[in-house]
Amino acid sequence: MELLYGHPKSLKPIQTKYCPGCGHGVIHRLIAEVIDELGIQGKAIITNPVGCSIWADLYFDFDSVQPPHGRTPAASTGIKRMLPDHLVVCYQGDGDLAAIGTAEIIHAANRGEKFTTIFVNNAIYGMTGGQMAPTTLIGQKATTAPYGRDPIDAGMGYPIQVCELLATLGGTKYLARGAVNNAVNVKKTKQYIKKAFEAQLRGEGFTMVEILSQCPTNWGMQPKESVEWLEQNMIPFYKLGEIKNTLDGEAQK
């Protein structure tokens, strides 16, 4: 018997605290798989954000730095500038990145900071129990949008398409959006992550992979239901694929 799919080395073999069906677990594994494939575990650093994935530093088997909520891109900037030959993974949720940390992500991207942001978009605040996020869809319910997000009458604003927003900035070189709701999308997402990490190691400017991720608990659904909801509701609005790719390295391929 030959082992086909085993446990990535740079991910600790322990059970996570994440809820059953939560997309973070898949995303952690993808990051670890790519880091193993690139052989960079000894020079990898992750910034774990405030949010559910603050627990990432319990699961990744490499150094971590935990900044205040929303300031992950700023801390990652400081880290990457000091350790340019390291792989810096700026792991963020949609509250961290698109709400409190909007200024930080826009300016880090605009400066072309050479770390890679892994932006987990689950359209809700997970850790704090299901509040509306900047990426919550119109009509989607949340504890702070009990009748569903209403941008018009209730002035709750519109869901933010982050990749498209950052694509206008000169410093961004690679912006892709994947999803972890089914095997095909998970595999494509891994390719985006690999491309972004390779670009980072080539010293190319700002790279980000936004990943649509299911949050069964705070969407109030069974895991199987949540991946279907994601497919029918999030994917039509948050288009999958490479939103921007101006990597120089691409030219050589």
């Binding site: 082992l3 994440y18 677990g25």
Partner: peptide
Amino acid sequence: IACGNCYTVCPDVAITVYKE
């Protein structure tokens, strides 16, 4: 058929797949 889909979607790396 050792396609690995189970491993791929599993959020907890609770499945490993072997091929005969």
